[in-house]
């Protein structure tokens, strides 16, 4: 039987790039377990390697060492069993919103009747609030609407896991709040295990069940994990007024500020041991 507490296991993940001064280690000894149906955020300073971790999970970047197991299977390469929402919506500009979703649905459910596949695509586009813009081209959609299509495309794959790479990073703050709500609503319908990379503390608190805080690189990994106790379904007002909200927020910001003060270590092959030892001390 599958252990529901370990739906997705990331073990001792390591990523290094070759550089003239020897391998530059971005991520080292990164461990993270996700429960089935859990929404986990990964926060950290820009450039700490959080997007690299997500990219490895998506199969778009190769790992140097470690292993990733998703639903009892080792993750190898990219595939539609993981729905990715990129920072830029990455819609294909020569296809309508509908076709952008359909191309994924066709891949995942090749044997389903066409009408049923169309229904899936239409359902998720409606769910993200694009019922009236189904057949519009990406150029006719605002940045926020394009990202809605991106979310619909990821969910429509019925993936084992959702990977969100700063999905709202390029949006203005009003649209961002709106889309966080949209994401929660779609996610409520089918709780797909999700890992979201963000550097927005409030976004992480509003959306996640747990927040993994990443240390600053090189050799970054998970420094601390915060449980977010707010009841679901969540309402922004209720979350903001929750007595624990500011304590949790302070905890996150305190961690990030602590990381900020660490002097960046020189990138060299013989350094990583010392770095990881410093980083491993639990907060």
């Amino acid at each position: 039987m599958r252990n529901p507490k370990k739906y997705c296991e990331i073990w001792k993940l390591q990523k290094s790039f070759p550089s003239p001064k020897g391998p530059a280690i971005v991520v080292k000894d990164f461990d993270l377990f996700l429960r089935d149906g859990e929404f986990v955020s990964l926060i950290g300073h820009s450039g700490c390697g959080k997007s690299t971790v997500l990219s490895i999970l998506a199969g778009l970047t190769t790992k140097t060492a470690g292993s990733i197991i998703l639903a009892d299977k080792e993750v190898r390469g990219a595939g539609p069993d993981r729905g990715v929402v990129f920072q830029a919506p990455c819609l294909l500009p020569w296809m309508s919103a509908f076709d952008n979703v359909m191309i994924g649905v066709d891949q995942v459910f090749p044997s389903a009747p066409r009408a049923q596949r169309r229904q899936i695509a239409e359902h998720y586009l409606e769910l993200v609030g694009l019922a009236d813009s189904v057949h519009k081209m990406p150029a006719e959609l605002s940045q926020g609407m394009r990202q809605r299509v991106g979310i619909a495309r990821a969910f429509a794959l019925s993936p084992k896991m959702l990977l969100l790479d700063e999905p709202f990073g390029m949006l203005d703050s009003l649209t961002r709040l709106e889309l966080q709500q949209v994401l929660l609503e779609v996610w409520r319908e089918r709780k797909i295990t999700a890992l979201m990379v963000t550097h927005d503390v409030d976004e992480a608190l509003f959306l996640s069940d747990r927040i993994a805080m990443m240390t600053s690189g090189p050799g970054a990994n998970v420094g601390d994990i915060l449980e977010v106790p707010f009841a679901r379904p969540r309402d922004r007002k209720a979350v903001l007024e929750h007595p624990d909200y500011y304590r949790l927020r302070e905890h996150l910001i305190g961690f990030l500020e602590g990381q900020d003060h660490r002097k960046p270590k020189p990138v060299a092959a013989e350094e990583p041991l010392a770095i990881s030892a410093a980083v491993l001390s639990p907060a």
Partner: peptide, 11 residues
């Protein structure tokens, strides 16, 4: 980005 879409969807 477009190539990534192709990879993620395993076209």
């Amino acid at each position: 980005d477009y190539l990534n879409v192709a990879r993620v969807l395993k076209l």
